[in-house]
């Protein structure tokens, strides 16, 4: 989608594939989408893809659900930067820890820092301040994406992939630094919020990917998100990834033969015939939605196949990341 900013005519805006290879050349890719569409799967696949291309990559979880760890069959990675595969790291951002880290860096004086941290009222104040969790989380993501890390020993990353909250909350998170910038008229928070906001809206540094399923409501939500991202942030999507696309296993003529066979079917085969027809039906319905998404997004949409696996494991993510590599 390449071109960013409010100046672009929305109707004429096109997804330009040429810009997408640049996706992994950004500092941060923010992956969002409706709940349950496979954001973690897509974030993991993107992370693996970047890692394979030799980029030192970190996938950030922000919901503290340790989905990445589960996906990679690991113990919870927690707030430590942990290597999951060569070049691929993960972290689960705990706002409390991110806040402590921020304050330590900000205050520098050990005495002042311990005054703050041992103070119950300060803890209370921090917990009650609206939006602070989102702000420190975005701050930590930004910190991870800096080539000059704030911690002397911390190695820089080439790319940060954020497994972000669902569309509504995800947009709220992107907006948070700007809100803090506007509220804090002066002072360190304003300076930092301003810096982080500038980073988010800079298409050279930040990319946004929406994950969808080829179904009515996720497609609608994807298009709505794109509109709101433009209206509220003046930003555009960098890619749309459609997850869980069923294979077209039976063509129309075959489906007819299967339907005919249902009439003559022996007991044991009725369920199998019905399953085949359901597959045919769903695969077709998905393609109607996929076409609609492509038409309304006016451009290319990358698809990931539905994997008939009870639980996805490392090999499956590897496979999906190769699919993504072909299509992005």
């Amino acid at each position: 989608m390449g071109v960013k900013g409010r100046t672009v005519d929305q109707n004429a805006r096109a997804v330009s594939l040429a810009a997408v290879p640049g996706l992994l050349d950004k500092r941060m890719v923010f992956v969002t989408g409706k709940g349950g569409v496979g954001k973690t799967t897509a974030a993991a696949a993107l992370g693996l893809m970047a890692a394979r291309q030799g980029k030192r990559t970190i996938v950030c979880e922000v919901s503290q659900q340790e989905r990445m760890s589960r996906a990679f069959r690991r113990e919870g990675v927690g707030f430590e930067e942990t290597e999951l595969a060569p070049n691929l790291n993960a972290i689960s951002i705990d706002p409390q820890r991110a806040q402590e880290e921020y304050l330590r860096l900000q205050i520098r004086s050990k005495a002042l820092y311990s005054v703050l941290f041992s103070n119950r009222i300060f803890q209370y104040l921090a917990a009650a301040t609206p939006g602070l969790r989102e702000m420190v989380t975005m701050g930590k993501i930004w910190e991870l994406a800096q080539l000059e890390r704030r911690w002397v020993k911390a190695a820089p990353y080439d790319l940060v992939v954020v497994d972000a909250p669902a569309t509504g909350h995800g947009l709220g998170m992107l907006r948070t630094p700007r809100t803090f910038r506007d509220i804090a008229r002066a002072g360190p928070i304003r300076r930092q919020a301003d810096q982080i906001h500038a980073f988010i809206v800079d298409p050279k540094q930040t990319g946004v990917v929406v994950v969808a399923l080829p179904e009515e409501m996720p497609v609608n939500e994807t298009l709505d998100f794109r509109r709101m991202l433009d209206e509220e942030m003046g930003m555009d999507l960098d890619a749309i990834v459609v997850n869980g696309l069923y294979p077209e296993r039976f063509n129309g003529a075959e489906a007819e033969r299967i339907a005919d066979a249902q009439l003559a079917a022996v007991d044991g085969s009725a369920d199998a015939l019905r399953a085949a027809l359901s597959e045919h039906h769903r695969a077709r319905a998905q393609r109607v939605q996929l076409r609609r998404l492509r038409r309304e997004a006016k451009g290319e949409v990358a698809t990931l196949p539905f994997l008939f696996e009870p639980e996805l494991d490392f090999d499956d993510f590897e496979r999906l990341s190769r699919e993504l590599e072909k299509k992005l």
């Binding site: 304050l103 900000q106 205050i107 004086s109 005495a111 002042l112 820092y113 005054v115 703050l116 103070n119 009222i121 300060f122 104040l125 009650a128 301040t129 509220i183 804090a184 008229r185 002066a186 002072g187 360190p188 928070i189 304003r190």
Partner: peptide, 28 residues
């Protein structure tokens, strides 16, 4: 809160800046 509070204010101001601290104070 005694003497510690002055220090606490100093620390907070350093983090938030004076304006934000005032707004937060108002808010609460």
């Amino acid at each position: 809160f005694g003497r510690g509070t002055g220090l606490l204010f100093a620390a907070l101001k350093r983090v938030t800046g004076v304006d934000l601290l005032q707004d937060l104070s108002e808010f609460f």
